[in-house]
Amino acid sequence: MTLRKLALACAVTATSLTAAGGALAEFPSESPIRLVSPYGAGGAVDIAGRILSSVSGEFLDTRVDVISLSGAGGQEAIEYVRDAEPDGYTMLITDYGPLVTTALREDVGYELDDWIPIVQITEVAPIFFARADSAFTSIEALIEAAQAAPDTISVGHGRHLSVPHLPLILLEQEAEFSTVHLPTTGGAQALAFVLGGQVDVGASVPSTIQGSVDDGTLVALAVATAERVSSMPDVPTLLELGFDVVMPAWYTIFAHRDVPEERRAILEERIMAALESESAQALGQRTGTDVQPLGAEASMTAYQTTIGNLTAILDQLVD
């Protein structure tokens, strides 16, 4: 097994060297680019990839195909990209769940620094909300009540350690209170339970609750991002309220670090241009994706911050 892997690695390196030397000028026009997603088709990550895919012809000189490999909790996708030739034609598109959280909790076949972000397509803001007629119409009210009676207030937050759950854990550490964390199947269920009065507070992403906030049934309490969210400008950030909880999720395109740097630079430039284009922005509007592309450097910072935050939270949980 190891021998075969070694042989494969040698072969791959050899071909990539010759390929990189011979045809650099034409990159990336030789073959279609594959964006491999660890989620099923139709999900938010998949849609983000398809936005790039539909404007690729003009900016990348080649086609971009989104391939979803959701097997083994998304690990099939990551392994597929890891094992592909590092020629820049096969990249990973993901949020931090399968890539970072799983790697920190389980044995996986890669190291976190094997992956170099190319472009962050969008940032997703975790948001806390409650019913407008409930007692918790602000984060302060929630914290006060929870401190007075620990473990009585329930917060529905999607899957365990999902994008809205982690900021909740961080906030509880930061503000010293505790609630009942209720895992749900996702934002839709968390929303239904809050609307039905089964659960006191919900945590999700803005697109899930936009409708109910607009018609006044729900109030959004706070978002866990550095800046306010453009679709809900009245909702304060936790940072503004005095809590150092910045834990946004991102959908980012990654390349393996063995992909030559020149190629990564070309990809970054072209993909940035494609996502900044009017047609990509329009597609983003239509699909509820806030397309705000960030270059390699900024994406790397976001990636590292997330790894740092997650490591801290998970260490805390193990203790």
Partner: peptide, 14 residues
């Protein structure tokens, strides 16, 4: 989110 009944097979983790 912990794995269960997969008998250590990563293919079954999903």
């Amino acid at each position: 989110g912990a794995q269960r009944y997969t008998f250590g097979m990563p293919e079954l983790s999903g």
